[in-house]
């Protein structure tokens, strides 16, 4: 399989992830708000995330969609996944005083442990995409 096709598949998997979670938040906004306020976050920060998180996910999906912006989409995806994965890890390792409800969006059936595995998978996928694009650029650079 060509490298460009592999990168497209990686980007597509990430688009699928971010688009589904963003749409699920927006189509049931009241529930999403309630779930965010249940998390172990300061109330004001939760309010900020309620309004910005779906927009950021849609933006990252857009960046991943177009070849010209895919590099930035992969970087943004990796950054987001580091944050999400870090939060889940902190919850699981008892950093917070209590475990909030595992009630977030489409992945609510997973529970916190499987959520961590799920996040790590997409984090590694993002890194793989970044590596493949970067390697492709270096090869093209050497050929010029």
């Amino acid at each position: 399989m060509k490298t460009s096709t592999q990168i497209q598949l990686i980007a597509s998997a990430l688009i699928l992830l971010f688009l589904i979670t963003a749409i699920s938040k927006l189509t049931d906004f009241g529930l999403f708000k309630g779930q965010m306020y249940k998390q172990t976050l300061p109330h004001e920060f939760a309010t900020f995330l309620i309004w910005t998180l779906p927009c950021i996910e849609l933006l990252v999906s857009g960046l991943l969609f177009f070849e010209r912006t895919r590099w930035y989409g992969l970087l943004a995806s990796a950054f987001l996944m580091v944050l999400f994965t870090g939060y889940v890890a902190l919850v699981l390792f008892g950093f917070f005083s209590h475990v909030p409800c595992a009630c977030g969006g489409v992945i609510k059936e997973l529970g916190w442990k499987m959520h961590l595995v799920f996040n790590i998978f997409f984090l590694l996928l993002s890194f793989l995409g970044i590596y493949m694009v970067h390697r492709g650029r270096r090869i093209v650079g050497k050929q010029l």
Partner: peptide, 14 residues
């Protein structure tokens, strides 16, 4: 042609 796979992902997600 270059965006066909991402386009499919968008269609599946929606």
């Amino acid at each position: 042609k270059k965006s066909i796979i991402p386009m499919l992902a968008v269609i599946i997600a929606v």
